[in-house]
Design a protein around this nucleic acid. Sequence first.
DNA 1: GATATTTGACCTAG
DNA 2: CTAGGTCAAATATC
Length: 236
Amino acid sequence: MESADGSNGAGGGGLVVTELSHIKELVRQLEVHLGGGSSHELCRHLTTQIFSITERSIGIMTASSGLDAAGARKRAAGLASPLPATPTSDVADGPFRSTKKRKVMEKRKHQVRVSSPGGGAGENPVDDGHSWRKYGQKEILGAKHPRGYYRCTHRHSQGCLATKQVQRTDEDPALVDVIYHGDHTCVQRPAAAGQGQPPEHNPDVVSALVAASAPPAPAVDGLDELLDIDIASFFA
DNA sequence: GATATTTGACCTAG
DNA sequence: CTAGGTCAAATATC
């Protein structure tokens, strides 16, 4: 119906390339420091920078591809009440549910590929510093393993809309793809270390993202913006 | 008893 | 119509 977001990533391409080049340089430094066993402080600093720049690139691409507007439009067209925090007990009568409101995904989307520890019996493979609650699982066509759907535990208490999808890769059951949607707006506990890191992002995610830059054949199908794959191709 | 997970049904986009 | 994503009741665990 609409042709607004036909070519994504074409708008801020130059800026994104600049940012990605910056990331590339930072990762190179990080590699050097990791190999030399340098201080964790420096590595942490580098990963923080990488994440920051990645975020910026995502913002550029999102803005230029009109994803934001598309998402908002979908919601406006489909439902009249976008407020999620309104229980109102819509199932007041009978076993049949009345009109169930459905939220459309957030605008942001990150995919990381991580290896599940110890052969993973299927539990949460990535502890990224946030507490997640599983709310669904689906068999995905063409995939051998089901996909798990998680949302932030603080969704109702703090209105945090971050979600993630966890799915084992078809070829390597030891690897899982984790797709993050949205940002954490919840306030985590002080984390005892006093690193002063922002509540949303986490260095672990960054290291996972950096580690994900190995596979040569991405084979991305339905993902609109796979930032990590783009970054990976930069490193190749 | 409170919280998390499981699971089938429901809803929407393509 | 199909596949993917979410909801919410039922169930399990702490």
